[in-house]
């Protein structure tokens, strides 16, 4: 819980900083994470490709080119700093840790149940989704783009139907554990 609050405060501070010198001071923490190997520079490649596109877009669309470039560079620095700290926190926490945080924040039970069951649903449906897509690709390797969209829609429809079957099983499991509160206590103790 404390880690998440600290990360949010850090992210908010960085988000609201406009001065370059202040940003340099705030970059000490993410730099430490990078130097101690808590995050690999490789994991920053993807966001920096997006950052490059963003800087280019801002410099071309801003009233003054150099101002756009500067704004883009400041935003890119903020994104890197916040992402690094956020990544390290979430890596330490994991999905189960995040679930614990949600519980300790005293959020509505329905929202916590929704979170737990969505994570569970992703695990259950992922395999079925992948299998359906692979089999569709094997049956029809060379199709037009429109047919590909049609196949995608029918695969999604099939997975939605399977989700109903699983939801009926889950409803029974939740009832057997004494409703949502009993289910949450059980999930929390695991």
């Amino acid at each position: 819980m404390c880690k998440v609050i600290a990360t949010l405060i850090y992210a908010l501070t960085v988000s609201l900083t406009h001065s370059v010198s202040l940003l340099a001071v705030e970059s000490i923490l993410p730099m430490m994470f990078l130097l101690t190997g808590k995050i690999s520079p490789k994991s920053l490649i993807k966001i920096n490709i997006m950052n490059a596109v963003m800087i280019l877009t801002l410099s071309l669309t801003w009233p003054v080119f150099s101002d756009g470039l500067k704004t883009g560079a400041i935003i890119a620095a903020r994104v890197n700093m916040i992402y690094t700290v956020f990544f390290v926190t979430m890596k330490a926490l994991g999905v189960s840790g995040l679930y614990g945080v949600l519980l300790s924040m005293r959020l509505p039970v329905k929202l916590c149940v929704l979170f737990v069951l969505t994570v569970r649903g992703i695990e259950i449906l992922r395999e079925r989704f992948d299998t359906a897509l692979i089999s569709a690709r094997l049956r029809a390797p060379d199709v037009t783009s429109v047919t590909r969209l049609k196949i995608f829609a029918s695969v999604l429809g099939t997975v939605l139907l399977q989700s109903v079957i699983h939801s009926e099983n889950m409803t029974r499991a939740v009832k057997l554990r004494g409703g949502f509160r009993g289910f949450m206590n059980h999930a929390g103790s695991r």
Binding site: L117, G121, V174
Partner: peptide, 8 residues
Amino acid sequence: IKTALASS
């Protein structure tokens, strides 16, 4: 529960 699985 249905919402959670459809969301997944």
